[in-house]
Write a protein that binds this DNA or RNA. Structure first.
Length: 865
RNA sequence: GGGGACGUGGCGGAACUGGUAGACGCGCCGGACUUAAAAUCCGUUGAUUUCGGUCGUCCGGGUUCGAUUCCCGGCGUCCCCA
């Protein structure tokens, strides 16, 4: 009897799968009547090394892919590389390595590591987004969007990252800092390329309704991100002489027209045209506006920044009450690109307005009365009232509820020609220009005479030049001696290429479509995409809930409108998996220490830690996401080396629900490793060669084993379908314990025969989780072909059904005994059996039975007093 | 400030739509094997107990024959938005 050796077994089976080409995806024409299934994990950034998060992500996808294969689906399960981006340029700047070489070297080593994982991937479809073939096709569809008017250039205020020297999308600014560099973001005016995602705002909201296999959380986040609100645009006239160019008044946008009578001031954005005009004439205004430029441009940044304002001295008339005038301020909390860049402030019912009013001693007039409050005494202090209530202090609106009042004001303003009801979105058009080298060049040419000219199709791809320098900050494309100088495709005059490259989120917004035919002559092979899309199961981190997942939905819709595709939603099913965490450790000097240099000492139920080297005490810290900075990292290769790939795959899925974080522990992976060995031991103890088939009707233990096996088929199938891998794995452990109770040594022919059937089932059920082990086991029992090609075991409903039930018997809700009855037995019979039970009868002594509740196959509860 | 999720043994977690709380794993404790240790294997393991029980799913109420599950009010942790 040989011990299972993963180091020998695992590479052998990876090679066997590879040689048999089992993971090559069938084209639609070869699939016959097999249904298709597209499983995709978010493709990795080629940082150079895989980490445990990758192991968990790809192991989960592999479980689904292998399961669906075994269930008879034609499965597409590809892999590629999200390969453009800043880290490659940082490596170039810090170490003088070319981004291209750095990236492709990283891909080579990560590919090798991923292949160790034994994933059922069709590697023939692999590509990297930095391959000229890929980004050339991206340039082609970009131009088709340009032609459709979905791409445009505009000067706008942008988030500028002074460290990376590039523009960031709002989504990439977190707490006022660049998401990658961490530098405080500045506002700058620049001409940028934009994708018209706002054209699809409504469609992107409506589409969420059909995504019933997405987590609610993600759908809510996207809806909030798009932030549709209905409101009113209305015009305020200047009370005195209007400033030149603003004779028509000031247009503001509000979502609370019901509070119009509570308005006490107007505020305009620092970059509002009126602010510009006033700044030209007044140095104090100019200085204030300049001051406001500091800090991030996103809503959250502005919200958290201190409210600051400057009184312009101008006044406007209240549109519904000509006797009232309101001062016009410039406010740093007003956003130019939301609504009209101007608001009316109603301090009593908006917290920002209230903060502002309290700071500058402006009037605070409540106009919404909370339920149960007295209109004579109700006042607003430092907290604005934003809840429901009745409108008051508002002339013709008095007594109305908020929604009715909103409608009345909109009607009134529209009738007077002072404005119009309007829908606005928090979502902005997607700024895709990046002033970086390592990205997809935007395929246009700027000509003095012809303006912006698309690069002709036949000249695509516009390839990045290799000979660039990184000795200075800024965009290497801009200072390349020749690359950008070209002849205008239209007039032939000297012209210049666009030197901005595309945001890398563009690269990842369509790769799933390219995978359906990665060698196609067009960006997307429409027939192949129609067959495979949408992705049936997409798996990745929840951190992409708004960025990547919203962009991909938009691009898919946009490409549909250009005719390149025929689906609107790219991902029918989405699963967001949790992270891999680990305890943190700090050494005697307070520095982080890596787990492998720490020894944990158990003392009863508590534990402490010391340095392996020297025995100095170590402080056990919080459990956090594995990160290099906290050193709480275990390297996948080390784990594969010590315990094998199967044990690592099994453990990252066994200890926690997949959507939650899993805590990596040594004990846990050792448990998974023990499971692998115990499974092998059961197979290896079975006599070699075919086992004589014996009908297992006489010996109940043999029949029980088969029944357990068939119940396991049902339970595990359900667990995988429902993404409850931890529960499914627990069932596998449970079954292993049952089969161990009937060892092969000294077994009767009947038991041996039942074991043979049970083991055949077990080998196929463990295959999605521990595929190499499954092959070894399958081979050991003489299975037909390879386990990877074996069909999923079929559940025999008669065997899986339980004919006997153990029902707990409660008296007044407390468990007092149990009775064994036939499944489905009627209430009256069960009641009789329960009351006759000796233990139950004892507890009923001196009591009168008032009522007996029987829940079929579940429980009996006797009410007595 | 708004919205959401969560809170169960020493630990990770299980319990399908209200029906035996603690599956499965880890750890601990005990035993076998060993000169010894590691590994492996077997067993115990929510608390308490006068061994009849009693208590127990963050806290306080409620609905119910029955609540980890549903409702109301707190406390705490995490996430998203502002």
């Amino acid at each position: 009897m040989a011990r299972y050796n993963p180091k020998e077994s695992e590479p052998r089976w990876v090679k066997a799968w590879d040689q048999a080409g089992v993971f090559a995806t069938k084209a639609q024409s070869d699939a016959g009547d097999q249904p298709k299934y597209y499983v995709l994990e978010m493709f990795p950034y080629p940082s150079g090394r895989i980490h445990m998060g990758h192991v968990r992500n790809y192991a989960m996808g592999d479980v689904v892919a292998r399961f669906k294969r075994a269930r008879g689906y034609n499965v597409l399960h590809p892999m590629g590389w999200d390969a453009f981006g800043m880290p490659a340029e940082n490596a170039a700047m810090e170490r003088g390595i070319h981004p291209k070489g750095w990236t492709y070297d990283n891909i080579a080593s990560m590919r090798q590591q991923l292949k160790l994982l034994g994933l059922s991937i069709d590697w023939s479809r692999e590509f990297a987004t930095c391959d000229p073939d890929y980004y050339g096709h991206q340039q082609a569809w970009f131009l088709s969007l340009l032609q459709k008017g979905l791409v445009y250039r505009k000067e706008g205020v942008v988030n500028w990252d002074p460290v990376d020297m590039t523009v960031l999308a709002n989504e990439q600014v977190i707490d006022g800092r660049g998401w990658r560099s961490g530098a405080v973001v500045e506002k700058r005016k620049l001409t940028q390329w934009f994708l018209r995602i706002t054209d699809y705002a409504d469609a992107l909201i409506e589409g969420l309704g059909g995504l019933d296999r997405w987590p609610d959380k993600v759908r809510t986040m996207q809806e909030n991100w798009i932030g549709r609100s209905r409101g009113l645009r209305l015009r305020f006239q200047f009370a005195d002489q209007a400033p030149t160019g603003f004779e028509a008044g000031l247009e503001v946008y509000t979502t609370r027209p019901d509070t119009l009578f509570g308005a006490s001031f107007l505020a305009i954005a620092p970059d509002h045209p009126l602010s510009d005009a006033l700044a030209k004439a007044n140095p104090a205004v100019a200085a204030f506006v300049a001051d406001c430029r500091k800090g991030g441009a996103s809503g959250a940044d502005i919200e958290t920044a201190e409210k600051k304002g400057l009184d312009t001295g101008l006044c406007v008339r209240h549109p519904l009450d000509p006797n009232q005038t309101l001062p016009v301020w410039i406010g740093n909390f007003v956003l130019m690109d939301y609504g009209t860049g101007a608001i009316f402030g109603c301090p009593a019912h908006d917290q920002r307005d209230l903060d502002f009013a309290r700071k500058y001693a402006l009037r605070v007039q409540p106009v919404v009365l909370p339920p149960g409050q007295d209109p004579r005494t109700f006042s607003v202090g430092l907290e604005a009232y934003t809840g429901p209530g009745t409108v008051f202090n508002s002339q013709f609106l008095d007594g109305l509820d908020i929604e009715t009042a909103k409608a009345r004001v909109i009607d009134q303003i529209e009738a007077a020609g002072q404005g119009k009801g309007a829908t606005v979105y928090r979502l902005r058009d997607w700024g895709v220009s990046r002033q970086r080298y390592w990205g997809c060049p935007i395929p246009v040419i700027h000509c003095q005479a012809c303006g912006v000219v698309p690069v002709p199709r036949e000249q695509l791809p516009v390839i990045l030049p290799d000979d660039v320098t990184f000795d200075r900050p800024g965009n290497p494309l801009l200072r390349h001696p020749t690359w950008r100088h070209v002849a205008c495709p239209t007039c032939g005059a000297a012209a210049e290429r666009e030197t901005d490259t595309l945001d890398t989120f563009v690269d990842s917004s369509w790769y799933f479509a390219r995978f359906t035919d990665p060698k196609a002559a067009d960006p997307i092979n429409t027939a192949a995409a129609d067959y495979w899309l949408p992705v049936d199961q997409y798996i990745g981190g929840v951190e992409h809930a708004v960025l990547h997942l919203l962009y991909a939905r938009f691009v898919t819709r946009a490409l549909k409108d250009t005719g390149a595709l025929d689906v609107a939603e790219p991902f029918a099913g989405l699963f967001t998996q949790g992270m891999v965490t680990h305890e943190t450790y700090r050494g005697p000097d307070g520095q982080w220490v890596e787990p492998q240099s720490v020894e944990i000492i158990a003392e009863g139920n508590s534990r402490r830690a010391v340095m392996i080297d020297g025995g100095a005490p170590v402080v056990i810290g919080d459990i956090e996401k594995m990160s290099k900075s906290k050193k709480n990292v275990v390297a996948p290769e080390d784990i594969f080396d010590a315990y094998g790939v199967d044990a690592a795959r099994l453990f990252v899925m066994s200890d926690s629900p997949p959507e939650r974080d899993v805590q990596w522990t040594n004990g846990g992976v050792e448990g998974a490793w023990r499971f692998v060995h115990r499974v092998w031991t059961e197979f290896d103890s079975q006599p070699e060669g075919a086992v004589a088939k014996v009908p297992y009707s006489h010996e109940s233990r043999a029949l029980d084993l088969l029944k357990a096996a068939h119940r396991l088929i049902g339970a595990l199938t359900d667990s995988i379908e429902a993404f409850r891998f931890n529960g499914g794995i627990a069932k596998l452990y449970e079954f292993l314990n049952i089969i161990k109770g009937l060892p092969a040594a000294g077994a009767t022919p009947e038991i041996l025969s039942a074991r043979a059937d049970a083991l055949s089932i077990l080998a196929r059920l463990v295959a999605p989780f521990t595929p190499h082990l499954a092959e070894a086991c399958w081979e050991r029992i003489g299975g037909d072909g390879m386990a990877v090609n074996a069909p999923w075991p079929v559940l025999d409903p008669e065997l899986a059904a339980d004919d006997q039930r153990i029902l707990p018997v409660q008296i007044n809700g407390k468990r007092r005994g149990e009775v064994t009855v036939l499944a489905g037995l009627g209430h009256a019979e069960v009641e009789q059996i329960a009351l006759a039970d000796e233990g139950v009868a004892r507890h009923l002594e001196g009591l009168t039975v008032r009522k007996v509740i029987v829940v079929t196959d579940r429980i009996v509860n006797i009410v007595a007093n």
